[in-house]
Design a protein around this nucleic acid. Structure first.
Lengths: 343, 343
DNA sequence: GTGAAAGCGCTAACAA
DNA sequence: TTGTTAGCGCTTTCAC
């Protein structure tokens, strides 16, 4: 913007936008009174409230929350860090988080690390620099350096999607180990004895996989045929994985996939090859993607509650931001195996 | 009257965190010099740079960008407003936007309006209050009030996913009318003459639909059997829609769906009923979801480039934030009809 | 209920 | 290349 309006000495700084001072002057009150009329209207006389509101309406004043945050050391901003938005799972969490926060007057700032996690440290610094009132992390924190910075910042942190005994601060998750175990028990109870696994290579998927394999052994089921694919997983990888599994020549009558998309891929390839699901092959997914029930055959899967993760995380952070203490800092939201037609 | 502030007994404000002053004192320089060492290291002597960096390392200083933004009137924050994150389409845009911005040192703030759009005004105020360096909107802006506030704010705006002659500011989109026309031409060229439509009720889908229907008439194809479903659309709605279309008794040999998920639903239901795709029924989607090519049969669809939308939008905003003027404010990224097995 | 003063932590402007 | 000064726009603290 080209300003010629510099009548006296120093050039004008600032954005030129309407400020609380302008509103106050117009309403004939002190700035602090205008501030109170905006933020705590109940502590101001009716007359003042009316005049301030009129001034706001006539000027189109929008409070500068940057300044407010700086002065009050409360930003009403919450940061969320996810490996990736693709994959419908974290998505649902982010969506629920955004909504729950917006309802309380908070905004969400989003950061993606990629599954590699190398960008995590930088990203974290960028985030901490904005002094959010809370940080929601996907997964549990591992880099010691990041952990240190996070703790030093004093910002409330919620780790999600996993369990650990030593959370940085608060935690909303469930046990991937338990998922692996229960899926194994599930296959076993249904008489399946030739298991395979198609799994992403992220840490949580790996944890489910290890538990699943250990359970297989404990239950006397032969070695699990495993195909590991890079996260985020796709339908195409599921198709390709089944091709590989079949090519191995080993018998397979049940596949546990680390995502519903992989499972859909396996089912798609099975159909293309005339393999009957669930007759010849049971397929179990993970995530209970919204369309899992509408597939043909309907997909059996592990249901977690991604939206619940978001809501609980939001509640944790808002509580802290408002000075309440959170008594139970770890929430296990559990999961359910939903049996449908594919098993 | 200028009184030198003597730090006597007033209670301490602030967050207690390490500030630039602390770093400067430790390094034995003035605060502004420390600031330069951090932000424009090339304009500071090697010696100073070294001392400041040491001070930063030893204190764990993280700059307060709230304060920096306030002073410089540049927040390096960009807001994105989407109807919903579900549906893989906006998602890809948001993802690309986040990445492109992060690469330039900007962060993304996310807002969801829901398709109803009633929350848009409030959301916009919350966003403007944070003084982002740019706002990326999904769709073109319609509420006159919002438009006014947006213009008054002086913040660069990019509308996306649609075209209009009167953008608020900048625009990255494509013509939904043209999509409707070309899909009609596509079906016609392949000898299909009994068309149906399964479409979400959001504005952009409606625009494609209207153009598609008009083209049908112009091409002498009978009235298009239409089933409108609420956005965001799901696989289940696609299945149900095909059931309804078939129940009407009217012949159908081609369906244009307003999303790939709807198309997958239609294909799923067709398979469940033994209807051959594409033999008896051609199915065309919209969006080219990542797994469209891996379906069986592979899904023909309209490919747009959601990530390109994000990248272009990011480029627009960064350009503006850095004071460059954007010569061509409207970008039509076009689309392609990708023919695969389903047609 | 209202106001004056003093910062929050940083950077733009000006000066040396 | 470095420093001094004066804010950015708001809210805290303290006083009336």
């Amino acid at each position: 913007m080209v300003t010629t309006a510099s009548p006296s000495r120093r050039a004008r700084r600032g954005s030129g936008a309407v400020t609380l001072h302008d509103v106050a002057r117009l309403a004939g009150v002190a700035p602090i009174t205008a501030s109170r009329a905006v933020n705590t209207p109940e502590r101001v006389s009716e007359d003042v409230l009316k005049r301030v509101n009129e001034a706001i309406a006539s000027t189109g004043y929008v409070p500068n929350r940057l300044a407010g945050s700086l002065a009050s050391t409360r930003s009403r901003l919450v940061a969320a860090v996810v490996p990736t938005l693709s994959g419908p799972i974290f998505l649902a969490t982010v969506q629920a988080l955004t909504d729950a926060l917006a309802a309380q007057g908070y905004q969400l700032m989003l950061g993606q690390t990629g599954y590699a996690g190398s960008r995590e440290d930088d990203l974290l610094d960028a985030i901490i620099g904005r002094r959010p009132d809370g940080i929601v992390l996907t997964g549990v924190m591992h880099s010691a350096e990041s952990r240190r910075r996070l703790e030093a910042s004093g910002i409330p942190v919620v780790e999600t999607w996993d369990l650990t005994d030593q959370p940085v601060d608060m935690l909303v998750g469930f046990s991937h180990v338990e998922v692996g175990r229960q899926v194994a028990a599930f296959f076993h109870a249904r008489g399946r004895r030739a298991w395979a696994l198609v799994s992403g290579d992220d840490e949580r998927a790996r944890r489910r996989r290890t538990a699943f394999e250990a359970s297989a052994q404990a239950l006397g089921v032969g070695p699990v045929l495993a195909k590991v694919v890079p996260s985020p997983t796709t339908l195409g990888m599921g198709r390709a994985a089944l091709v590989e599994l079949l090519a191995s020549g080993q018998a397979v009558d049940a596949v546990f996939c680390s995502s519903d998309l992989l499972a859909l891929g396996v089912m798609t390839e099975a159909r293309a090859r005339g393999i009957d699901v669930p007759g010849q092959l049971a397929v179990l997914g993970f995530g209970d993607i919204d369309f899992a029930a509408d597939l043909h055959p309907a997909l059996s899967t592990v249901r977690i509650h991604p939206d619940l993760v978001g809501q609980r995380a939001a509640a944790f952070i808002v509580a802290r931001a408002e000075g309440r203490t959170v008594s139970e800092k770890i929430v296990d939201i559990g999961f359910t195996i939903v049996e449908r037609a594919s098993t």
